[in-house]
Design a protein around this nucleic acid. Structure first.
Lengths: 259, 259
DNA sequence: TCGATCAGGATCGCATACAATACCATTCCT
DNA sequence: AGGAATGGTATTGTATGCGATCCTGATCGA
């Protein structure tokens, strides 16, 4: 890389052309929030599988593309690695995480525990407006069901995010968002190609239980629902460990391996 | 073989837990692990209240004291802020977090959810060796009960960490460790001065329930236990000291050399 | 032919440099 | 005298430079 010709001091910057490649621009170039933007961009790219599991993530290239220095990229990668979306090996750089099946099981277990808590906290406490919002969301899911695979998957995931946000517990939101992200990554690796993860009917059942205020039933429904997601989408284990190494070259052959 | 520490200075024989600290000095000289050392040093200092809630954390002062550049301090502070132990305001720097009562409630709620999951996962699956280890730990707690306040608190916290580690679920371990840290901070602010957080008898009851294999009872016991911890929340003071002097011991304990 | 040794380049780890901002204590004007 | 303007200093935000490490490919010897 050349000693860069892009200097950031610019009263009329043309910088907007390089930072947003993700559709609607949230525009967050405030001081101290730029690393967060990088983080969100990478996170989104990973979840949407624009960056496949195992793919290398060189600091220079990312910084170049996003218009920031390696420092900020580094910060974002560090955070992603804590969250399990990125693997960070000393002196070897970062790559999109490739969770083992064992890690996958761990994530789903924790997710079930967390979302059961969500169900319990929400049971009997859902306002009419919240229930309506969920109902509308479920209808959108139904509409997208056989028609748009990726959209359907995205909506199914968002249902759970909407739910946890209604608890008003910020920490719980963060944890559920994190496990959801990791689940997306896991399903991208081990999931069946076009299975929508969540049965919409189960979502509707859950809403009913929450409105009824039956805490235990709601929790059990959520539990079974997530259990069903695992059994529906996950393929039975074929190899125990180090699938990573087996599939590393495979992912690379998609066109981004270093020779 | 046991290293007889006869002529070795051992001022605080605290860290006896697991593979955590190998011997006297953890030696942070590995590449990429130095930021982690800074993180651990700060984390420990915050939890032990060497750094009180609200205290300012200037990057260069910390870097000076710990013998690293601001870059690494920044990385550590960033991580701590994600975990809620440090507050990070744009252009205003970092300070030890001062959780509101509402945030405190959120943390305890999530903790109850997580640890109930721990109890359920462990019920009926505890090996004899694990039960013995827990039993030994409880005896240590009893020994320290009226004698050593801080030690008692530390041991009570470690019991929960030991438990979650026995699940073998790495993600769950991380989450429980995080909420535990935040609970320590919260109790430092709102808790009674020297109340040991956990009733030792409740720990023993829990072990019994886990051995019996009664998943439901174990979960309820854990729930009740943590609820009891919460019900000991009141008001506390705040002090202000020089950060440089406070960090000395923590630099040494992580193998970092002050300048 | 094949394995080992060793450049050359790419990339990372970390410190440091420099600009931007906030903080503080004056000074100046009314 | 009191409040606003102002300059200096402390601290943060970000980029960049330099040495270290690893990876790749080529040369050499058996």
């Amino acid at each position: 890389m050349r000693p860069s010709s892009r200097n950031v001091r610019n009263p009329k910057p043309t910088a907007k052309s390089r930072a947003d490649e993700a559709g609607a621009a949230p525009q967050a170039s405030q001081p101290g929030q730029r690393a967060l933007s990088v983080y969100r961009a990478l996170r989104k790219a990973i979840i949407e599988q624009a960056l496949s599991p195992g793919m290398k993530l060189p600091e220079d290239a990312i910084g170049d593309r996003l218009g920031v220095s390696r420092t900020l990229v580094r910060e974002a990668l560090g955070r992603l690695s804590i969250e399990g979306l990125v693997e960070l090996k000393p002196n070897r750089g970062a790559s999109v995480a490739y969770p083992t099946l064992e890690e996958a099981r761990d994530v789903f277990d924790v997710r079930r525990g967390l979302e059961r808590l969500v169900a319990e906290m929400l049971a009997g406490r859902l306002t009419r407006a919240q229930a309506d919002q969920l109902e509308r969301h479920v209808r959108m899911e139904e509409a997208a069901l056989g028609r748009d695979g990726p959209e359907s998957i995205r909506l199914a995931g968002e249902f759970h995010i909407k739910l946890v946000e209604m608890t008003g517990n910020a920490l719980l939101v963060r944890y559920v968002e994190e496990v959801s992200s990791r689940c997306s990554l896991i399903l991208a690796i081990y999931g069946r190609p076009h299975s929508s993860e969540c049965a919409v009917s189960e979502h509707r059942q859950l809403i009913d239980a929450l409105l009824k205020g039956d805490s235990r039933q709601a929790a059990d429904l959520m539990d079974h629902h997530l259990q069903a997601v695992v059994s529906r989408a996950l393929i039975a284990p074929r190899v125990d460990r180090d699938i990573r190494d087996l599939l590393g070259p495979y992912a690379a052959s998609e066109g981004l391996s270093p020779t």
